[in-house]
Simulated scan of single mutants.
Amino acid sequence: MGDTVVVKADDMVIQPKNYMRGYVTTTVHYLTSVIFYICLNFLKNYPLTLIAFCRSQILSRQAIKSFKPAPRFYSLAVERSQETATNDFSNVNNKRNNEAQISALRARLNLQSVNMETFKQALAHRSDQNVSLAYIGQWVSTLCVSEYIHCKYPNLFPDALESTVTAYIGHQSLSNLAREVGLDSTTISSFDQQQDANRGSNSKAKLATSDCMRALIGAIYKENGFDAAKKFIHDFILSREFNVNDTINFKEPKRHLSALLRKLNKEPAISRILSETGRASSSPVFVVGVFSGSEKLGEGFGYNLKMAEFRACHAALNKHYGKEVVDFTLPSDADKVTNYTAGPLGDTQAIP
């Protein structure tokens, strides 16, 4: 039977029979069958797939563990291990070299009588033993230097005395001494001496070496007593030249000199021109002397009379306060001489 078409006369509309229904139904059945077949095969082989997947994961992990680094990374690891070994060898050599330097320093300073361990402790900056030895060395050195300066310059007033003592045993002086004797190269410290060499006077490396020098004095005192420490201080510290006049400074020397002369019961100071040249020129020079009666106290020069008088009064004060005694006996050596006579006792400055 073929398809039938119904034709109505009133509207002339053609209505075809729904012949596509069978085709769609067939297609859906086919796709459903395909999907069911795929799912059936998957469910049938699922255990084997799961086992294979787990096995592949285990093999992958084992393979990852057995991997060796790439050649460039492997060579880098070898270089690092070789560098570590080299550093360890260098550290051993540096330690041996440091031991040799410490022994040489000990012999150079003639301190073989000091125990080697105590000597090393003095060079180990900021260790517990080093701090204790440095504290002792500070007071021992202050006592010895103050005693010596006071006996050598009995008229030196306290402020100038303190400045002079500091000039001998301050951080800068002890750091310079440490560098001269070679102590700075044997100091066991965390500071880099080479990088710190060009820094200021209060740099950490200089503080470290000066502290170690004080600790060394403390070690000598601890091991061999006060006399040995005093001998070391006189041989290495007080033997250095220093102009004590650099610590005698006054803003008003003329006023201070007048007060000093009254205190000493001397005639007042009088300034006199000793010589001059070029008074009418652009660069004159005057030489002025300061007298107390007939005694000449000081002399100075300058491009005008005021400057020359200023320098003359300052020279007179330096002459009085910086007077040096050549032959004297230290109070700490009183028991070593037959007849000990104490030296003169200084006084404070005329105008505090």
Rank of each mutant, 00 (worst) to 15 (best):
P352Y: 03
I248T: 06
I64M: 10
E223N: 14
S103H: 04
T25Q: 05
L257S: 07
G343I: 12
D227E: 13
V5W: 07
E99V: 11
R55P: 01
G293D: 04
A178I: 01
D10C: 02
S275L: 00
T164W: 05
G289Q: 06
N198D: 13
G2T: 07
N339Q: 12
I220K: 02
V244S: 03
T32Y: 00
Q193R: 13
S141I: 01
V28I: 01
D333T: 02
K95M: 09
V288F: 03
G298Y: 04
A315Y: 07
A52K: 13
E223G: 00
V326D: 14
L143K: 03
A63S: 13
I188A: 06
S239C: 03
S60Q: 14
Y153N: 08
H314I: 11
F89G: 03
P284S: 09
F191P: 01
I64D: 07
T118P: 02
E99Y: 11
H314T: 15
K296H: 11
Y37L: 11
L123W: 07
Q62I: 11
R255A: 13
Q121N: 15
V78M: 08
A167W: 10
K68E: 15
I51A: 13
S141N: 01
L207T: 03
N198T: 10
P284M: 11
D3A: 08
A52R: 10
A269K: 06
L133N: 03
